[in-house]
Design a protein around this nucleic acid. Structure first.
Length: 586
DNA sequence: GCCGTTTTCGGCCCGACTGTTTTCAGTCG
């Protein structure tokens, strides 16, 4: 069992307590424990096996430590089983709907017998919901819309979660006899921000029945959807579908190309091939003999031009190899034809991280620990960007505390001289677009990061005007997570991103690509637009622990999907260049 | 449920909107 599973289970426990109407502080205690577990750098199983005392961990006391140990030993928690007998676990789904929390879920359950989103839909249709006291016609409408939005998300997984789930499958497949190679294809290889299902390719010669049988016997499979000589399909307990295809070496590159997609990209590539008298399928690239109707040919008929490698497939149709992140049919085939593909930014190009939190607000590590961890990553510079005071719930910095923090930063600069430690604040953009920090403090910061954390339901014009006003402040450097989305949890707020990016270009403000796998905000499309407008993009982790710094790769993935090159990324600049940019208005 | 040179019991963070109220509960960040 992974820490992720422990955290999820404790979170479920907290959810049920909340619906039950338990003491809010007890619920928070569980949430804090979830937070701690999520921030651990080592597996709990290893810690428990080593006899370590879990109550040493922050936010974990006697009771939660017992829960964790019971969970690791038995796979469940007695308390959780008791609770789910009283409150159906499916009610948690209701609370995931925007505008529905634990109290409403409980009332819907007790008064209308609603146990699931489907039940709720039926009750909405019958008009029963709006008759409940405290619920009106507008509430009912709002809930119906929330269900609609929720539907659009179900079935898609965050990329970090998907990676963890797939790691188990890959591990299992390594034990399959005769499999020379196993690769991930599909949207996961293209590094899409969310994943619907996973495509795996196994290289194997001959009849693949036994490989597929091994695959579908994976212990993490909840059910088997299909099983044959070249293809198997399973659904994991999490609901993630994983397909496996068994491919011989001669076709592996072609299959990789084909199953990586996207569909639009493949159509574009094949259209080119047809014009050249070629045929591309998952088995290879073939020359169609003169005067033959291709539809009458077998899958590998004709002269084989390529198939073993992906590079060979692209070369055969007259294209240079296209990085998977670009394969969305957004102009990459034309660029490859013209020899004008971008040289995409890589993780190695990143020279610093310009958003992270410390114990001064809601981070779990000290400034020194964060600075040292960044130095270990080989960064030249790092900005500590604790929240401002509007974020009272996380002890956001008042001007006074900001000044106190600078003293600590000065000390850490002495202790960790190998990295440039920048004074910063993630300053809240208030309702009217003013900034949650006085000018005299902003004046003394090295980097000013601004972002919206409140009043996220403002209408499009109000929100856009608010953000534009904030960006116009002459001390602002970076607009962080500009659309506020939380993948599968919250839609982006209403904002005119195009206007924001144009303003960023005019005002010389950079925009963030928040690398947290739950945010990835701006998204790939928007950062591509930023590049076109010449707006620098800061790829930042928003780390709340030293472990969170490792999320940088997820941000780089999305930057690559947005066609960014090192020159487009603010924190790929050497310190001297970044400093010159930070001083641009001085 | 966690935590502790204010404490082993009594705090634990706060403000604002929404929709439904006629003074507020629920939700959100």
């Amino acid at each position: 069992m992974q820490n992720l599973d422990v955290a999820r289970t404790l979170d479920t426990l907290a959810d049920l307590l909340e619906i039950k109407g338990e003491n809010p502080f007890r619920i928070r205690a569980y949430r804090n424990a979830v937070n701690t577990v999520n921030g651990l750098s080592r597996p709990l199983t290893a810690m428990v096996a080593a006899g370590e005392d879990l109550t040493e961990l922050p936010g974990i006391g006697e009771r939660v430590a017992e829960h964790i140990e019971e969970l690791l030993k038995t796979g469940t928690i007695t308390r959780l089983e008791e609770l789910s007998a009283e409150v159906p676990k499916t009610l948690i789904d209701l609370t995931r709907l925007e505008g529905v929390g634990p109290k409403k879920a409980k009332r819907l359950f007790e008064e209308l017998g609603v146990r699931s989103v489907e039940d709720l839909e039926a009750q909405l249709a019958s008009g029963a919901v709006q008759k409940l006291s405290g619920f009106g016609a507008r509430s009912a409408e709002k809930i119906a819309r929330a269900i609609e939005a929720h539907r659009q998300h179900t079935g898609r997984f965050q990329i970090d979660e998907t990676e963890k789930l797939v790691a188990g499958v890959l591990e299992h497949m390594r034990a399959a006899e005769g499999v020379a190679r196993i690769d991930v294809a599909g949207s996961m290889r293209r590094r899409k921000d969310t994943i619907g299902d996973v495509d795996l390719l196994a290289q194997y010669e001959g009849d693949g029945t036994r490989v597929v049988e091994h695959f579908v016997a994976y212990s993490g499979a909840a059910r088997v959807e299909g099983s044959g000589p070249t293809k198997g399909s399973i659904v994991l307990h999490s609901g993630l579908q994983v397909d496996l295809r068994v491919i011989p070496a001669r076709s592996f590159g072609a299959a990789l190309q084909y199953f990586t997609g996207s569909k639009g990209h493949n159509v574009a590539v094949r259209t080119r091939a047809v014009r050249k008298g070629l045929r591309v399928n998952e088995w290879g690239v073939f020359r169609v003999p003169e005067g033959v109707d291709p539809s009458e040919l077998g899958k590998e008929d004709g002269q084989r031009l390529a198939g073993e490698t992906e590079e060979g497939v692209y070369e055969a149709v007259g294209l240079s190899w296209i990085p998977p992140e670009l394969r969305e049919n957004r102009g990459e085939v034309e660029a490859a034809t013209a020899g004008a593909l971008p040289e995409l930014v890589t993780l190695q190009d990143i020279r610093g991280d310009l958003q992270m939190h410390s114990t001064w607000s809601d981070g779990r590590a000290s400034i020194e620990d964060m600075a040292r961890a960044c130095a270990e990553r080989g960064y030249e510079y790092v900005a500590i960007t604790d929240h401002s005071q509007a974020m009272a719930m996380v002890q956001g910095l008042t001007p006074e505390r900001a000044r106190q923090q600078w003293r600590e930063i000065a000390e850490v600069r002495e202790l960790v001289p190998q990295i440039v430690l920048l004074r910063s604040v993630e300053v809240d953009i208030l309702a009217d677009g003013s900034l949650d920090m006085p000018d005299d403090v902003l004046e003394e910061l090295d980097v000013v990061v601004i972002s919206v954390h409140s009043l996220m339901s403002q209408d499009r014009k109000t929100m856009t005007d608010r953000v534009l006003r904030a960006m116009a402040h002459p001390r602002v450097d970076i607009l962080a997570h500009p659309t506020g989305r939380r993948i599968n949890r919250r839609e982006p707020f209403e904002i005119d991103v195009e206007s924001v990016l144009e303003a960023a270009a005019d005002l010389s403000v950079a925009v963030e690509l928040n690398a947290h796998p739950n945010r990835l905000d701006l998204n790939d499309v928007h950062v591509h637009r930023a590049k076109e407008l010449g707006v620098p993009v800061a790829v930042s982790t928003d780390a709340h622990s030293t472990r969170g710094l490792a999320d940088m790769r997820f941000g780089v993935d999305q930057a690559r999907r947005g066609w960014l090159e090192a020159a487009d990324v603010l924190n790929a600049r050497p310190w001297a260049e970044l400093k010159a940019w930070l001083d641009r208005r001085r």
